[in-house]
């Protein structure tokens, strides 16, 4: 559960997005889509705590995990300077990931920005199950567009949205999805990851659509194991609501059960 993962490579994908390749054969075998690694970026007092990163892929037989991250603060800025050959202590793979239901097709994946990372991993699992897969992917602008073709199985049908219209549909990715549904798309089930407002929007719309929807959430985390009870999210189940932990009860939750 705790391992020293070797930094095999760090590659800049866009102006502020990176692909980190970590060698940790056991984690690579164990990891399932939606799970995360809790990484000590540096043995320092600032940044101090571990940071959770969802696994973007673990190509079979390679012993390597792909992490895609954006520099958003001090921790990720330090990570973007990680040196090849050094190692990072990682807890993992942690959390409960996506659970595709056999027979439900097509699978519709909804990604906002960096939220695409765990869905790339999920796409490979779904492809193995011979499902039809559609990925609705939204970013702010063409400059943030990740080279997704490199990471996706070939059969995935990609639908692109940018807020500023510099590529694909102009507007929020949730609007693009809504249009596709109006146009006759009938998802067997949906999987979403991205900024909270996007997830909240799709969960709200889904009250009318009523498709099975799994969402992957993010919260500030300390232990990553459920002990500190820091990463709380309110969940309603059977008429009762309570705080659950993103790290161990999630990060993937039933979209209908999250209280936003």
């Amino acid at each position: 559960m705790l391992a020293n993962a070797r930094v095999l490579n760090l590659e800049k994908l866009t102006a502020s997005d990176y692909l980190l390749l970590l060698e940790e054969p056991q984690f690579a075998v164990q990891a399932s889509p939606g799970q995360f690694l809790h990484i000590r970026i540096k043995d320092s007092l600032a940044p101090f705590l571990r940071r959770p990163f969802s696994v973007a892929g673990a190509p079979p037989g390679k012993g390597v995990l792909q992490i895609i991250f954006r520099v958003v603060g001090k921790g990720t800025a330090v990570l973007s300077q990680a040196k090849r050959g050094t190692s990072l202590t990682c807890l993992g793979p942690l959390g409960k990931g996506f659970k595709p239901t056999p027979g439900l097709s097509p699978a519709v994946l909804l990604a906002g920005g960096m939220g695409v990372a765990p869905l790339l991993f999920l796409a490979h699992l779904l492809a193995k199950e011979q499902k039809k897969i559609l990925l609705f992917y939204g970013v702010a602008s063409i400059t943030e567009l990740l080279p997704l073709k490199r990471f996706l199985p070939p059969q995935v049908e990609l639908h692109l949205a940018t807020d500023d219209g510099t590529s694909g549909y102009r507007g929020p990715v949730t609007a693009l999805l809504a249009e596709a549904l109006q146009g006759g798309l009938k998802p067997g089930e949906m999987f979403a990851c991205g900024p909270r407002p996007m997830l909240q929007a799709v969960a709200g719309q889904n009250r009318g659509w009523n498709f099975p929807l799994q969402v992957s959430l993010e919260e500030r985390m300390a232990c990553g194991l459920g002990a500190c009870q820091g990463c709380a999210v309110k969940i309603r189940q059977g008429g009762e609501s309570s705080y659950r932990m993103v790290c161990c009860d999630g990060p993937v939750f039933d979209g209908q059960e999250v209280i936003w």
Binding site: L45, A46, P47, F48, L49, E219, R220, M221, A222, C228, Q229, G230, C231, A232, V233, K234, S242, Y243
Partner: peptide, 13 residues
């Protein structure tokens, strides 16, 4: 039930 999130904030050290 505990407090509403966010419940954690990292600080220097």
């Amino acid at each position: 039930e505990g407090n509403p999130p966010p419940r954690l904030a990292e600080t220097p050290a």
